[in-house]
Each structure stands twice: as C-alpha cells, then as structure tokens.
Nucleic acid binder design. Structure first.
Length: 211
DNA sequence: GTCCTGATCCTCT
DNA sequence: GAGGATCAGGACG
C-alpha cells in the first residue's frame, strides 16, 4: 500500500473523484484500526452551485481552500458529519465527498461504533453505505477537519502496484477496478446543480448508498 | 418493497 | 429564521 501523494492531486477534481474509487481510507484510532475501500464518490466544483465553496470562503468552508489532500469535514442536519477530500490547488474550493465504503478491516469495530448511535443490528452492507454512516463507522470526528491525509492517523492509500507519478496508467485501472465498471449519475440529495453528472460508483457493487 | 416523518443544530441570509 | 451533500423507523401495500 502506498500513500496518495501530491502527484495524484494534479488531476482535475472530476478525475480525482473517479480515481479515488478503489483506494483505501485508513484510520488508526486508539480503539483499533479500520479500513474501507472507496466505492462511491461525488465531485463538488468551484463553479458548481451545490458546492459549499461556490459562494466564497466562510469559516465553515475554509478547509476547502486548503491545498489538495486535506480533509474537509462538515456538520449537517443537526446530527451528522460528512467527509470530503480537498482536491484543487490552494485557494480554489473544490472537494470530493466520500459517499460509501466497502469495509475491509476492523469490521467488528465498525459494528460497535454504528451500534452506539442506534441499537439496531446492521448487515455488513449497511455499515458504510452513506456519507454519515461511514464517518461514524470509521470513527472520524470533526477534530479531523483540515488534517493532511498523507500523514497522521487518517490516510488515503492505494495498492503500490504503479508509481505515484502515474495515477492514470492503464495498469492502475486494471488493478484498481478489475472487471468493475465505473457508473456516472447525478448527485444525491441536492437541489442546486442537481442535473450535473458528478457522482461516480462501482457498478453492481453491493456497498454503494443507492442504485 | 416505497413513502413519510422526526431527530436535532450549525450556518448563512 | 430558514434550510441543509442524512438516517432510521414506522406506516402502508
């Protein structure tokens, strides 16, 4: 496994949203380690009315203007948090929302964290199939807003099959996606910019949030 | 299975 | 003061 470095973020936000599919989100917490494979993302661009940063910088969205590879975590609907990867160069507010993960490691811990919020029992497919769910399952907190995802306890990794400097190589696509096809649709739960085809997920993957 | 609602509070207007 | 990049549970069929 290899950390996603600066060269990965030289791509456009839409390319990053697609190429984050198949990479691994890792959190080393005091309670244990959890790992999930990213299977669903949404892109939010600077000139996109749905993007929090589209109307300029505010205290809430200022992390979106950080250099790429940082975390933007925001509070929504009075009780949930969503996790984004900042994607554009410093000063440009763009990000990719991580909408669903396929649990890979620390599945018991994910169950425990999700069960704390509500006493129901979840199938493995329901642990991380939504932006707020995966934040809970991974143990991500608002304190991690703005952290650098190439160092520290919360990291983005991918199989070290191809060099970091060649993120779009055919080799990588084969390894990362296997036979899996990437599906593109409009985004979930927004009104502004609802027609834009900025949602990406692995077709037929059982861990995505919505068909 | 689908649809509706309540929970709950920060953020920007 | 309104609204929001959500979720779970209940009603209904």
């Amino acid at each position: 496994m290899k950390i996603l470095g600066p060269s990965f973020y030289k791509q456009t936000t839409l390319e990053i949203a697609k190429n984050l599919l198949g990479t691994f989100l890792v959190h080393d917490s005091p309670n244990g380690k959890t790992v999930g494979k990213i299977v669903e993302t949404e892109a939010y661009l600077a000139d996109d009315p749905a993007c929090h940063a589209s109307r300029g910088e505010t205290p809430r969205n200022k992390m979106m203007f950080d250099p790429p590879g940082h975390a933007y975590i925001y509070f929504i609907y009075g009780m949930y948090f969503c996790f984004n990867v900042v994607t554009a160069k410093k000063g440009v507010g763009e990000a990719v929302l991580i909408r669903a993960l396929e649990p890979v490691e620390g599945i018991e811990l994910m169950h425990k964290r999700r069960a704390k919020k509500n006493k129901g029992h979840f199938s493995i497919h329901e642990l991380c199939n939504g932006p707020a769910k995966l934040v809970i399952a991974m143990g991500i907190t608002k304190d991690m807003n703005g952290v650098d995802l190439s160092k520290g306890d919360l990291k983005l990794l991918r199989p070290s099959v191809t060099p970091d400097s060649d993120p779009g190589s055919p080799g990588r696509s084969r390894i990362q996606c296997g036979m899996t096809e990437i599906h593109t649709t409009t985004r979930i739960g927004i009104v502004q910019g609802a027609h834009l085809p900025y949602r990406f997920y692995f077709k037929d993957n059982p861990f995505i949030s919505k068909r």
